[in-house]
Structures are given as C-alpha cells and as structure tokens.
Design a protein around this nucleic acid. Structure first.
Lengths: 196, 196
DNA sequence: GTATCATTAGGACGATTGACCTAGATCCGG
DNA sequence: CCGGATCTAGGTCAATCGTCCTAATGATAC
C-alpha cells in the first residue's frame, strides 16, 4: 500500500508550499512539480483542494501536539518549557524572516478568504494557548494563566510579522531576550532551580 | 477631466478589497463590480494589476502620513501622541477582528508572493516606526528610541493577528491597557502633565 | 457644427485554474 | 497465472484569470 506514502508525500509538499507561497497562490501544478506526481493523481487522494488544506492542518495539529509533548517531557520546570516556546523564534528565524509564522499567516489568509477551514486553522493557536496556560498555572499563576498565554502568543506573533517585514534578525534576538526576561520576572522563585 | 476621479474611485475600491480579501484573491471583476465600471476601463488607467497595487500602496502611504501629522498636531506631548497610535487598535477593532492589520497582512502576503512591491509595502511600517521613534526621542529615550518603536509596533501587530484569529475584543482591550501602562511606566515624569 | 482628443464599455484573446474522466500500471490473494 | 482491487498518468472540461483591442461616447476647441 504505497498510497498512504503518496498521500503523505502530497500533504508534506502542500504543507511547505502553503507556508512559503500561501494557500491560494499554490496551484496543483506547483504541488505536482514539487512531488513529481501527475496532477490527476491528486484527485484519487483528495476530491477537492480544500481536502488537501484540511489534511495539511491536521498534519500541523499533530506535529504541534508532538512538539508540545516533547517540550513537556524534555524540561522539568514550566519556566524551562516556556523558554522552549520562545526559543522557536530563534530556531526558525531563517524561515520566519522569509515567510512569517506558519500559523499566523495561514490564519490571516483564511480569515480574509472567509474559508471554511478558518476556525480549524486557529485551533493551532489554541493548542499553544492552552499549553502555555497550563505552564503558567504550574507557575502559580492559575488565576491569569490564559491572559499570560495570550500575551506571550501575541508577542511571538508580533515578532514574526515584523521580522518578516524588515528581515531583521537582530530584532528577533532582542525581543526574544526581552521575552525571556519577562518570563523570569514573572516568577523569580520558580526559575531559581535553573540557575543552580 | 473626470479621469482622475475615476482613477481615485478604482484605487479606493481596490484598497478596501485588497484589505478585506487580499491582493491575489481580488480579481478585476471584483473591483469592477465594486465600482460599477467595466473591466476594460481599468486598462486605460492602469496597464497591469501591479500598477493598481502600487497606487493602493501610495494611497496608504499618503493617508498614513496624514494620520501621523494629525496626531502630531492634535497632541502636545509625545506620550499623548503614542497613546493615539495605541488607540488605533480600539478604533479599528471591528475591522481588525475580521481582517487583521492592513499593513501587516499585506506585507505578509506580498512577502510570500515574492512580489516586487513587497519592500514598498513595508515602507508603511517604516513610517510608523520612524514616527514612533521620534516620539520616544522626545521622551528622552533617544538612545533606544528605535528599539522602543519596534517593540510597540510588534505588540500592535501581535494583538491584531490574535484578535483576528480568536475574534476576541476583550483581548484587544486588555492588551491595549497593558500597552498604555507600559508607555506610562516608560517616562512617568513626562506623562504627569496629562494628569494635572 | 465639426474636428479632435479623452474617456469608457464590452467583447475576445491566450493562459491557467480546480475539477473530472478514463485507460493503463501495479499489486496481491487464489 | 489469473482477476479484481488499488493506484497512477495524462488528457479534457468549463470557468476564470489578467490582458488587450476596438468601437462608441463624452467633452472641448475652433
């Protein structure tokens, strides 16, 4: 059953192209060229283009869950885990400066298109939001955990947008440092174990 | 010479549609329907679609300069003026929750399309950036004025992105309040005259 | 009133889009 | 070795895209 592999191949190529060029601007011919498959073949795996988008969003949701679970397991303190989230901006800085944040730009495009998958795309944000809120709760900020999560999410989105507009890596590093300081200031006690 | 009026009519309709639907997703037929003009008429005023985009960006640049000049004249202190900038998020909240920030989303789309006008679109950001930096300089923060300007710009972009993704007005108000507090904390002395 | 130029309407073009169809290739249990 | 199911390639479709062209209309000057 090589079909599953082919389907996966298509979805991953679409995932990359949707990020780099946008959903609407990516034609089947582009995905066909990227995968080396024929155009018509797509319609065996997906009836309409929206189904590919759906599959891409599903893939991203899965990968995001894995990413969050990885951070959850790799770090012992919530502060460390939140640092992992912030660190994404550094780790993905090259692509971010070219194409912005994959989540933010997809949501923005689908919102403008009034696309059905718009709400499903924002679930990607919700994953980060709820995970971050969980970490802030562990930090003893259960009362305003969601507020803090949204604040941090907001800052990462703003950084990605401006970093792409100005192609400015120094700006990313500067703001990331400020976000880390903001986090440390939130609960100085909880972060102490990191420095011992 | 009604040609100038017609041209202006086209550009303003395109400006709105490019914001609400995006550049690529807006076809000539859409602008024609919005203006009540015939498709072919466009090519008397603009040779190619990119020229319309160029005219739209020029229009936005002009309006932004007027906006900034208005704030400059209406308020006497830099703190008040910066509050005007932050207040945009409240004033335009309805459209922001539907379509995001006009500047940020346009820059993001053009960057993905590798469009020639991409750098020209980011000049819109530069206008705000330099104006804000000027205000921070007046606040006695000349040394890190640009850094502060970028920070504030970043926060407004993040707020717009998340506000659109979650359609959350309370989030906007909460973050705007935090931005105002951040500004007041920057130079408590300079803001005192506002409270007397 | 006529000649001239500016402006507009609307049709037609080639290219490309998403979508569909069918014939052939591949696989696999009997 | 076969026969049915699975999978793929490539052609075709109508619709729509940006672009172009021409004829009709409007206004202006003499």
């Amino acid at each position: 059953m090589a079909a599953a592999a082919t389907r996966q191949h298509i979805v991953e190529a679409a995932d990359r192209l949707f990020y780099e060029r946008g959903f609407e601007a990516t034609a089947f011919a582009d995905i066909a060229a990227a995968t080396g498959l024929s155009r018509g073949n797509f319609y065996y795996h997906f009836k309409v283009k929206n189904e590919i988008l759906d599959a891409v969003i599903t893939l991203r949701l899965e990968r995001t869950r894995l990413l969050l679970a990885g951070w959850q397991a790799a770090a012992e303190t919530p502060v460390e885990r939140i640092h992992s989230f912030i660190g994404m901006l550094i780790g993905n800085r090259a692509k971010i400066m070219l194409y912005g944040c994959p989540v933010g730009t997809l949501c923005a495009e689908l919102a403008k298109l009034d696309h059905i998958a718009s709400s499903r795309a924002s679930e990607l944000f919700t994953l980060f939001r709820e995970w971050l809120a969980g970490q802030f709760s562990l930090l003893g900020r259960a009362a305003d955990a969601d507020r803090l999560a949204m604040h941090l999410l907001m800052r990462s989105q703003g950084v990605a947008t401006l970093a792409a507009a100005f192609r400015d890596e120094a700006f990313i590093r500067r703001e990331v440092e400020q976000m880390n300081l903001w986090l440390e200031a939130l609960s100085p006690a909880a972060s102490l174990p990191l420095e011992t």
